[in-house]
Design a protein around this nucleic acid. Structure first.
Lengths: 183, 183
DNA sequence: TGGCCAAGTCAACAGGTGTTGACCTAGGCT
DNA sequence: AGCCTAGGTCAACACCTGTTGACTTGGCCA
């Protein structure tokens, strides 16, 4: 009983996501990914061609942001922080992306794309300069992910999600809706 | 005309900081650091023993936080954000530390130490739970550094420092002084 | 049944890594 | 002068990396 091509391909993809998330781009080796997927390194190459391409396939990611324009303004921050926390936890693609983006150019580009375009679109219509507001929200949410999931900074990593939301929601809401303080 | 031991040691240290900052821990090689310092890889080993130890020596870092208790509350955020921006820019140790901390355990530990202990001390006396407040400030300032200097997210990296300060100062001030929202 | 093709295996390659030890050499000391 | 040591050089080691090509095997279809 042998696996189908698509099955092994999927197994490789999951193993790759886990390894990239845990070890970063350079320390995640084709050999270790193949071992996790119970297959051969050569088969990984046949399916994805290159380590770079494997990463690109593994790091395909959508923030799946909710439509912010339908929400009342005062619950905007809460909803967004909650959504980001869930997105970090339910899937290790974001962690893989962040760990890799710090040393790998392609990953950094991908990250830039995701956060500027997807967030800017969601922020559009709420206030002026949606790109700036998207960048600010990115700085706070990525900082949170970095401290809580990657560095595991002691107070931030252990905080219950409700506490995190209570503290960060007003920040995010202000970045999205407050008047430009430099104007 | 030959250099003194301390001179080459210092040259190696500067080269190491630059390489670790630009490439991260694994992609910064002993050979490339030695080349930058115009010396031999073997000499690097003689001076520092191990790549890990070289990194530890290169990533020795002090946030040099000002004494926050002497400042008026309403300029606390401005002062801190300004200080962090300067610290990121005047010295690439922070960038080296962050780039390495994402894949290297020792670097992550060091980072944890610096941000929790040094920041918590500075935050003590301003309000209750200084460790929690330190963690929150870390999440925002590290997120800023990540977006502005490492990922170079388009709107955040290009923003003039005054704009960054205007947006982030209220956040940092609130994290340091506001009443606990979960209490 | 026999053949064909997808799926899997194996061994090797070329290059790069941290690290080591043997060796050389400049230059201040007695 | 001659030595002795700190500072520098060189070549090699053992290992690990992405990647390749030739090979074997399983299972479906005619």
């Amino acid at each position: 009983m042998r696996r189908s091509g698509d099955q092994t391909k999927a197994a490789i993809l999951t193993a790759a996501r886990e390894r990239f998330a845990a070890d970063g781009y350079e320390r995640a080796t084709i050999r270790s990914i193949a071992a996790d997927a119970a297959t051969d390194p050569a088969l990984v190459m046949r399916h994805f061609g290159t380590k770079e391409k494997l990463f690109a396939a593994a790091a395909d990611f959508d923030l799946r942001l909710p439509d912010l324009s339908t929400l009342p303004r005062e619950s905007l921050g809460t909803a967004l922080v909650d959504h980001f926390l869930r997105r970090w936890e339910e899937d290790d693609t974001l962690q893989a992306l962040l760990r890799a983006a710090v040393t790998n150019q392609a990953a950094a580009d991908r990250m830039r794309d995701i956060f500027t375009s997807q967030l800017a679109v969601a922020a559009a219509g709420l206030a002026d300069n949606p790109e700036v507001r998207a960048g600010l929200v990115a700085s706070q949410t990525l900082g949170l992910g970095l401290c809580r999931y990657v560095l595991q900074l002691t107070p931030v990593a252990e905080m219950p999600r409700a506490t995190v939301i209570a503290w960060l929601a007003p920040t995010v809401e202000r970045y999205l809706t407050a008047a430009d303080p430099t104007a």
